[in-house]
Structures are given as structure tokens and as C-alpha cells.
């Protein structure tokens, strides 16, 4: 799938990374804009109105989390953050501040495209869609029925909620906190064990091999993601 005439803003203080992203994204038909600092980003978003923003967390002037927060004050443009392996807390903070997804450096072009697609699709398909499907997993929202390979699965209300959230955000990462808050409420924001137990149970119910999950993927230290094919 190629997105033509979509505009992307690439933000990274490293010239080499911007060069690579420009090449890769141009090849996919994007119009690429660049920025190298937080200030520039805010200006560029206003003037270029990109459809998606690729944002590095390690910016020189103010960090990516702050940029995300500011952007989210007035913009709903999808943001994918780039960060290093160890900076989990930063990733969570950025996601909680409103970023849509993240990529750990170094990443492959395929991964990048997949995340971008997912992030932008959300915009498109935010409408009321009663049936959510990924692979062999189908959820009928109107009838509240979940099937795997057309076999109905019996879920607790909590499990249903979790699955629904993940399916509606298929392909995108949801932080623990986001899940907990949306399923249980703000008071349960840090009750990790509840979430884990539920995920574990969910896996046992819907995964062909619970030990090697196909659908419900753990993003270590960050949250969970429902894996989509692309």
C-alpha cells in the first residue's frame, strides 16, 4: 500500500537519520518535511500541516515528550516517537502525553511503514464500525460476541473490554496505564497485576498457543498491542 500525497514531518537532530527517513518515505510517495528541534517542529506543524509526525525523543532544546504535549494542545495529527531501547519511562510518558506509537532505534523500514499505516488508519476508520476483525479473531460489537476461527469464546466483561480496546486500536500500542484507566478507571491506574492476570486469561482463551501469542503482543515495559498482519 502506498500513500500518495500524504505529508510527513520528520523530526530528528541527527542529519543521517533525517536523510534516511527522507529517502525511505519519499520512495513511498510521501512529501517529506524536516525539523531538527522542538521549536522548529511546532513551527513546521503550523506551516506545513503534515498528516503524520515522526518525532525523535532526544531533541536538543526541549524533549520530545514536551513537544508532544504542546502539539496535543491543539493538534490531533498522529505522532510516532523514536527512542532508544532503555528509555521505557520516556516512551510511556510520551504515549501518555498523546503520542500514538513508538519505534525503538534501530528499526527497519518495514516496521516504520507498518506503524505509520496503523497510526493514520485510526483517523480514517474512527467511525462506528460494529465488526472488528484481525486475522481469525472477530469481535461483533453490536452483539457482544467474540469468535476465533468462528468459534465463540466466552469472556468476562473485563476481558471483553480489554480486547475491544485493543481491537479498536489494532496495531497500535496501548500503555498499561491507558488500558487500566479506560477499563477500570483512574483509581486503578497502577494495578498492574490485575491487567496481567486478565491478559494472561485472555491469551489462554483466544491464542492458538498462549505461550507464543499471535494476537496479544506484550510491549515490554510499555504495554500491549494487538498485532495486525501488516
Amino acid at each position: 500500500m502506498s500513500e500518495t500525497n500524504q505529508r510527513v514531518l520528520v523530526v530528528d537532530d541527527e542529519n543521517s537519520i533525517r536523510r534516511y527517513l527522507r529517502a525511505a518515505l519519499s520512495a513511498q510517495g510521501f512529501t517529506v518535511y524536516e525539523a531538527a528541534s522542538g521549536e522548529e517542529t511546532l513551527k513546521a506543524v503550523l506551516s506545513n500541516r503534515p498528516d503524520i509526525i515522526i518525532l525523535d525523543l532526544g531533541l536538543p532544546d526541549f524533549d520530545g515528550i514536551e513537544v508532544t504535549r504542546r502539539l496535543r494542545e491543539w493538534s490531533q495529527t498522529p505522532i510516532i516517537i523514536l527512542s532508544v531501547r532503555e528509555a521505557e519511562n520516556d516512551k510511556i510518558a510520551a504515549l501518555d502525553a498523546g503520542a500514538d506509537d513508538y519505534l525503538t532505534k534501530p528499526f527497519g523500514t518495514g516496521e516504520l511503514m507498518a506503524r505509520m499505516r496503523v497510526a493514520m488508519r485510526r483517523l480514517v476508520s474512527n467511525s462506528d464500525e460494529p465488526i472488528l476483525q484481525v486475522d481469525n479473531l472477530k469481535m461483533d460489537l453490536s452483539r457482544r460476541v467474540v469468535t476465533v476461527n468462528n468459534n465463540p469464546i466466552s469472556l468476562t466483561p473485563t476481558e471483553y473490554e480489554i480486547l475491544r480496546l485493543l481491537l479498536q486500536n489494532a496495531g497500535k500500542v496501548l500503555t498499561h496505564r491507558q488500558l487500566l484507566r479506560q477499563v477500570w478507571g483512574t483509581a486503578y491506574e497502577s494495578e498492574m497485576h490485575i491487567l496481567r492476570v486478565n491478559i494472561s486469561n485472555l491469551r489462554r482463551k483466544i491464542e492458538p498457543d498462549p505461550a507464543r501469542p499471535h494476537y496479544l503482543v506484550t510491549e515490554p515495559g510499555v504495554g500491549y498491542r494487538l498485532r495486525t498482519e501488516d
Partner: peptide, 12 residues
């Protein structure tokens, strides 16, 4: 943490 999850993620 869920041990099974750890294993699964590692294998992944």
C-alpha cells in the same frame, strides 16, 4: 509479572 509472558516475549 507473568512468567509465560516473559518467555513468550523473549521468544518473540
Amino acid at each position: 509479572g507473568d512468567i509465560q509472558d516473559v518467555i513468550g516475549t523473549a521468544l518473540d
